Simulated scan of single mutants.
Amino acid sequence: MKPSCRSSAVGFAREDAQVVAETAGDLDVYRSVRAEVLLLGGTRSPAHLRSALTALERVLPRARRVALKGLDHSATSNALT
């Protein structure tokens, strides 16, 4: 049985939450990332998510940040068709 988009999203959210919990308060672990990283966030995203991107931007040596004007954390759901 093929997983639905919703069940996949729930699985990803759990994995994201686990990574966040494992690295809580220890963003220095990301300083060793040498790959180019694109940080995407919406200008209408919750403050805690914007703050998280700011913190990551400070520690990731090759990060570039793009703010998607007028979009929130669910940007794919509020994009114009």
Rank of each mutant, 00 (worst) to 15 (best):
Glu22Gly: 01
Thr54Asp: 15
Asp16Val: 01
Ala63Gln: 06
His73Glu: 05
Arg34His: 06
Arg31Asp: 08
Lys2Trp: 09
Ala79Gln: 08
Leu40Lys: 01
Leu71Val: 03
Leu40Val: 07
Val20Trp: 07
Ala55Phe: 04
Ala24Tyr: 09
Leu38Met: 14
Val37Tyr: 02
Ala55Trp: 03
Val19Tyr: 04
Ala47Pro: 10
Arg64Lys: 13
Arg14Asp: 00
Arg6Glu: 15
Arg34Gly: 14
Thr76Val: 12
Pro46Thr: 03
Ala52Pro: 00
Tyr30Ser: 06
Arg50Gln: 11
Leu60His: 04
Glu36Asn: 10
His73Ile: 05
Lys69Trp: 10
Ser51Thr: 14
Leu49Arg: 09
Pro61Gln: 15
Leu38Glu: 08
Ala35Phe: 03
Arg14Lys: 12
Glu22Ser: 08
Gly70Cys: 05
Met1Gln: 06
Thr76Asp: 13
Leu49Ile: 11
Phe12Asn: 06
Asn78Thr: 15
Arg64Pro: 01
Val37Phe: 04
Leu53Ile: 11
Arg14Gly: 00
Ser77Lys: 10
Arg50Gly: 02
Asp72Ala: 10
Ala21Pro: 02
Val59Ile: 02
Val20Glu: 07
Pro3Met: 03
Arg65Glu: 07
Leu68Tyr: 10
Leu60Glu: 04
Val29His: 00
Thr54Trp: 07
Ala47Val: 10
Leu80Gly: 04
Leu53Met: 15
Asn78Met: 05
Val59Ser: 04
Thr76Lys: 00
Asp26Cys: 05
Arg14Ala: 10
Arg6Gln: 13
Glu22Val: 00
Arg58His: 13
Gly25Asn: 03
Gln18Pro: 00
Ser8Glu: 09
Ala24Asn: 05
Ala55Met: 08
Ala17Tyr: 08
Arg58Tyr: 02
Gly11Ala: 11
Ser77Phe: 09
Val59Asn: 02
Arg6Gly: 06
Arg44Lys: 15
Pro61Leu: 09
Thr43Ser: 15
Val20Ile: 14
Cys5Leu: 14
Gln18Glu: 13
Arg62Asp: 11
Glu57Lys: 02
Ala52Gly: 09
Ser45Lys: 06
Ala67Trp: 15
Pro46Ala: 14
Thr76Met: 15
Asp72Glu: 01
Gly25Trp: 07
Ala55Gly: 10
Pro61Gly: 13
Leu27Asp: 11
Pro46Gly: 08
Pro46Lys: 11
Ser74Met: 13
Pro3Asp: 00
Ala75Thr: 07
Ala24Met: 04
Ala67Asn: 11
Pro46Met: 10
Gly41Pro: 03
Phe12Thr: 07
